[in-house]
């Protein structure tokens, strides 16, 4: 019965094609707008210093055995000194940091911008599609599907008698929304701003960044340094050098 449903060519010309076209154009527009809004972030001097400090302390922990015991000890006390060691974070300061991070207006502003460029166009287009094109059967896919696909392909049409292979206009919008990502990366280059999933991931990462506070990594590194034993590796290397030389001579 459903097979003799005939779609008007005007639907193709005035719903299917314009919808896809508008989706593409909005994607391109968003790419350029977000490029415009992207602020250049100047790294914070203190953050840079802390990052580098952790790296250097990690080197000491990993390769401390390669320097003489005296040098190792003096470095450790330089890092871990209770009064003014580099890795030592005073207690009052540790609590402050968290509050400081949240009150940093730059960070919040950045997130806002990213959010806005993502959410606003999506709600607008959805409202637009809903207003003008609700209830159309816009296309037919050339193969049969099971009933389960009904909610995916016929969003907005509450007729159970229509065959599942017909696609409603609102579903076509959703298919475009998620399906055009590959197309965008083709025309706008790999790192385009339209990629929503990536943005979500970034957001998650940033949230994580909020939670971790730098004083914790410093303290963890300090404890790690405190624990390791210095065992000078050089005497062992001397013997190995001997065997290397012997090998050369015996060749």
């Amino acid at each position: 019965m459903a097979n003799d449903l005939v779609l008007d060519t005007a639907i193709r010309d005035w719903v299917l094609v314009p919808l896809s076209l508008v989706m593409v154009l909005i994607g391109v527009l968003r790419h350029f707008v977000s490029k415009l809004l992207r602020s250049t972030n100047t790294p914070d001097l203190k953050a840079v210093k802390e990052g580098q400090l952790v790296v250097r302390a990690r080197y000491l922990r990993a390769a401390g055995n390669f320097i003489p015991a005296k040098a190792f000890k003096s470095r450790r006390s330089y890092y871990n000194n209770e009064e003014n060691g580099l890795l030592h974070v005073p207690k009052s300061q540790a609590q402050n940091m968290q509050a400081q991070m949240f009150s940093d207006p730059n960070m919040a502003m950045d997130m806002m911008k990213k959010n806005l460029s993502m959410i606003i166009p999506q709600t607008l287009t959805f409202a637009w599609v809903n207003f003008f094109f609700s209830g159309f059967v816009a296309a037919k896919i050339p193969f049969p599907l099971t009933q389960r696909f009904r909610s995916m392909l016929q969003n907005g049409i509450d007729l159970s008698s229509v065959d599942v292979s017909y696609v409603s206009s609102r579903s076509w919008y959703f298919l475009n929304l998620f399906g055009l990502r590959g197309f965008f990366s083709l025309i706008l280059g790999e790192e385009n701003a339209t990629d929503d999933t990536q943005k979500m991931m970034q957001m998650g990462g940033q949230m994580g960044g909020f939670g971790v506070d730098p004083s914790k990594t410093l303290t963890a590194e300090k404890d790690g340094l405190e624990l390791i034993q210095h065992d000078w590796a050089l005497p062992k290397l001397e013997q190995q050098a001997e065997s290397v030389l012997r090998q050369i001579l015996s060749r």
């Binding site: 050089l234 050098a241 050369i248």
Partner: peptide
């Protein structure tokens, strides 16, 4: 003595 040890390790690392 320290110097000698590090010369030795340099030999080892450069395979003589």
């Amino acid at each position: 003595r320290i110097a000698k040890k590090y010369y030795a390790s340099a030999i080892k690392l450069s395979a003589g």
